[in-house]
Design a binder for these strands. Structure first.
Ligand SMILES: [Mn+2]
Ligand SMILES: [Mn+2]
Ligand SMILES: [Zn+2]
Ligand SMILES: [Zn+2]
Lengths: 150, 150
DNA sequence: ATGCGAATTAGACACAGTCCAATTGCTGGA
DNA sequence: TCCAGCAATTGGACTGTGTCTAATTCGCAT
């Protein structure tokens, strides 16, 4: 049996470990994320799993991504107001985001130290600490006319 | 002339200082944000400026908020995948976000120290560093059925 | 009063994401 | 092998946020 790092059979085991019934569609979606190990939007994943012959619907892609997030297999990254990115890396880490190109990359958490964050109100727990370094090329922006400019 | 902190005439001056022609609608939108000094969504602002008699269109609210952001009068906060929050506070500061209630509050930057962020690739400049402390009540979630759960 | 550029507007549109009822697929038992 | 039952998938309608556009209105200078 093929046991390469992100073979279908191996992925099926990972899904089971997270309490997810490994169907064909779910394995393909997991493979899109884990084989590349990149931040992908739902739309990109839909395109990837359907290249060649279509085999997974949009509804299933969204269902599955939400299920994966809920089960802790992947996480969401909220950096772009127009779409969510899905992140196969669930280790604590931070992000650098190019606001021009939309490129999103990881920052290793080990080197980063954050101090002085406030105590949480009682009865509250931390879901996570997001750090996003928003960057852009220093080159002057290709000016686009903006309606409503004074 | 009324010169209270967020009077219309005072706000008009602030707009002019940012190169923005102070129209009635723009002043009302600025007032919604600066009088409360809270994080508001476009929808909330639209409702606020139109309570009582309607006087500002949805298009104008979006036009104006984008203009304000572009001119550095306010800034966007991206924490919720479904909508942008607009922040009248342009001082460097961070955010605490309750993922259950959607409540968004400021964290003073003075007390927080972040070290070890990577050097930027050459030719890149920082647009900003966002830190979002995602929290929720420790009480068990009111369980909502999730379609597609295994 | 008139003219003119800027601002505003209604409504169409784009598009991410959700919802739903109907269908398909899988599995375990007769 | 057939069937029942349940889980998963599906197309397509729907929602909500945000953008776009062409037409109108506004504010102001003459
Ligand atoms: Mn296939
Ligand atoms: Mn009014
Ligand atoms: Zn990441
Ligand atoms: Zn803030």
């Amino acid at each position: 049996m093929d046991m390469t790092r992100h073979s279908r059979s191996n992925l099926a085991g990972v899904l089971r470990q997270h309490g997810i019934n490994p169907t064909h569609q779910r394995i393909e979606i997991a493979r899109a994320l884990f084989a590349r190990f990149e931040h992908l939007s739902a739309d990109q994943i839909l395109a990837l799993v359907n290249e060649g012959h279509p085999e997974t619907s949009r509804a299933t892609v969204y269902n599955t991504l939400n299920l994966f997030v809920q089960r802790g297999l992947i996480r969401e990254v909220i950096v772009d107001p127009s779409k969510v990115f899905y992140d196969p890396n669930t280790q604590p880490h931070y992000h650098i985001y190019d606001v021009r190109t939309g490129r999103l990359a990881d920052i290793d958490a080990d080197s980063v130290r954050v101090t002085g964050l406030p105590d949480l109100p009682p009865g509250m727990v931390t879901e996570g600490v997001d750090i996003i370094l928003r960057v852009r090329s220093a080159a002057p922006e290709s000016e686009a006319a903006v309606q409503g400019a004074a």
